[in-house]
Amino acid sequence: MPGLAAAVADEIAALERPAGPEAIQLIRCEADETIARIVAGWPQAFDTKRALSLGFVPDADFDSIIRTYIEDEMNQRPR
């Protein structure tokens, strides 16, 4: 699958745009060794040529991922 690289700060900013500052206030920043080990095992870069050749289309940015979630999972249109 084509992927998208995004910093956590960019993901939080993308969430705040449609959900507002109230949603951001629910985020807690805390270290979790188990999660850190899982994430450390994820690839840092990968080749998506095959997925693209099969017709998969990457998300343009993290905002589009948030919009898709809201529309598909929450049956709403973002504000």
Rank of each mutant, 00 (worst) to 15 (best):
V57N: 08
L15C: 12
V39I: 10
A7V: 06
L4P: 04
A13V: 11
R17S: 15
G20K: 12
V8D: 10
E73C: 07
A60M: 04
D59Q: 02
R77G: 05
F62E: 03
P18R: 08
I65M: 03
E16F: 12
L52F: 05
P78K: 01
I38L: 15
R67G: 00
D32M: 09
P2W: 09
E22M: 12
G20W: 12
W42Y: 14
C29A: 15
P78Q: 00
A45L: 04
I70V: 09
A40M: 06
L15Y: 10
W42I: 05
A7Q: 14
E11H: 06
E11R: 12
F46I: 13
E73Y: 07
Q76Y: 03
F62P: 00
G55P: 07
P43R: 15
A60R: 14
P21V: 10
Q76G: 06
A5T: 11
D47F: 01
D47Y: 09
L15F: 11
R79Q: 07
A19C: 12
P78W: 00
Q76C: 03
A40N: 08
A9R: 15
E16T: 13
A23V: 14
I12Q: 10
V57S: 09
A45S: 08
L15Q: 12
A14R: 13
S64Y: 02
S53E: 11
E22V: 14
R17W: 11
D47G: 05
F62D: 02
Y69Q: 00
L54G: 04
L4E: 05
I27P: 05
L15A: 09
G3K: 12
M1T: 06
I66A: 08
P43H: 13
I66F: 06
S53L: 02
S53A: 13
S53N: 03
A6E: 00
A31D: 11
G3F: 14
G41L: 08
A6K: 01
T48W: 11
A45G: 02
N75G: 06
D61L: 03
R50F: 12
R79A: 06
E11G: 10
A45N: 03
G55S: 06
E16I: 08
K49P: 01
S64W: 01
F56N: 06
D59C: 03
K49A: 14
I65A: 04
D72S: 11
A31W: 07
S53Q: 07
S64D: 06
A51S: 04
M1H: 11
A51H: 04
T48E: 15
Q25A: 12
A40W: 04
P58G: 02
I65L: 08
E71R: 10
I35L: 08
L52A: 13
D61T: 02
A6P: 01
G20A: 10
F46E: 14
T34G: 00
R28F: 04
V39M: 12
D10A: 15
I24E: 04
G41N: 13
I35S: 02
L52W: 05
A14N: 10
A19S: 12
M74C: 05
A19V: 13
L15D: 03
P43E: 08
R67Y: 00
D32I: 01
A5G: 10
Y69H: 09
A51F: 10
N75A: 11
A7Y: 14
Y69W: 10
P18H: 07
L26T: 15
L26S: 15
L4R: 07
F56M: 06
T68L: 13
E30C: 07
I35P: 03
K49Q: 12
E22P: 04
N75W: 10
I66M: 13
E30R: 10
L15G: 10
R17I: 13
